[in-house]
Structure formats: C-alpha cells, structure tokens
Amino acid sequence: MNVFRLTGDLSHLAAIIILLLKIWKSRSCAGISGKSQILFALVFTTRYLDLLTSFISLYNTSMKIIYVGCAYATVYLIYAKFRATYDGNHDTFRVEFLVVPVGGLAFLVNHDFSPLEILWTFSIYLESVAILPQLFMISKTGEAETITTHYLFCLGVYRALYLFNWIWRFYFEGFFDMIAIVAGVVQTILYCDFFYLYITKVLKGKKLSLPA
C-alpha cells in the first residue's frame, strides 16, 4: 500500500458516496446516467468474485463490499426508488457497443484463459469505458449540476492516482500488470476533457455548461 493507492481508493470511495448522497438528498437522479451506473455495478460484480476465493486483508474485503453494495444501491435508487426523476430520454448511449467488444477483447487478451480471470479482465476493460454513457448524457444536455461534476472529478482522479500507484509498484516492487495499466491510461484519458472544464469552470464557481 502506497500513498497513491490509498488516496486513489479514497477518491473512488468519495465519488461513490457523493453520488449516492446527491441522489438521496435531492430525491432525484436527474442528470445521472443509469446506464453508466449499471455498467459500474457490472464492473464491481465481475471483478470482486475473488471475495469468494481469496482473502487479502480486512481493508481489501471491506472496500470491495462497500463498492459493490453502493453500486447496487445507486442502481436501485435510479431505477426503482426515484425512477420518476430518471432522465431516460437523454440517457441514450448504446451500451451494447461497449459491453460486446469489451467482452470479446477480454476473451482474446487476458493473462489466463479461466472463467475468473476472463471476468476480471472484462471488468478492467469495462471500467475504462463505463463512464462514456454519463459523458454522452452531459454532452447531449449540454450541462451538469456542480455536485455531479464533483462526482466525476473524484472518479477520474481515482484512476489517475492508480497510474502513479503502478509507477510506484514498478519501481519499488518490480510489479506491473499491462492489462490494468493500458486500460487505466485509456480510462484517465477519457476524463481529460472533463478535467479541463472542471478546472477552468467549476473551480471558478461557474456551472459546467457546454457551448451549444
């Protein structure tokens, strides 16, 4: 455990909690892509099947359970409890265009052709693009609530911090995982445009709105 890894995890946790609280407090999931949240629930489910096969630490187990639990709670709030506020008309990204190629790639490029390993690889690839329906929704409506941008910022920073964690692990532990690194770079790049808008607009007190 290094400082990048820990702050990355905490940033990820903050993102998840911010989104849950935003929906819960406002009793509304307007502006949130339910599709992205379903993809994240799928990501955590397929990645953390190792909860059943290996124990690493109390920290590891608790965080995995919290991530999975919060992911399903978020999906429940969007599609059940606050369904009336869900903005389905703007959440029109075709997720099959992500899930199918990512599934195929996980079968072709993996460390070991075993069910758990393929599912882990699938989750890594899928996570890297799971935010696309959300970004697509924002580009369609042309704006995002400030609290939603805080969520996205924390979520993007998390994977960027993991990149530093992997650099650290490579230098000090001689460890690197090419699948995670390439997917993590792709994931971080997808946020760059958003990071720019966040820093130039939201941090200066302006609402994030895109030019028409």
Binding site: I56, S57, M63, L116, W120, D177
Partner: peptide, 10 residues
C-alpha cells in the same frame, strides 16, 4: 487466478 498483488488492488 492466484496473483495476490492483483487481487489486492480495487
């Protein structure tokens, strides 16, 4: 799938 380092990451 037995890489402990990888299972350690979230």
């Amino acid at each position: 799938s037995g890489d402990p380092v990888r299972h350690d990451e979230l």
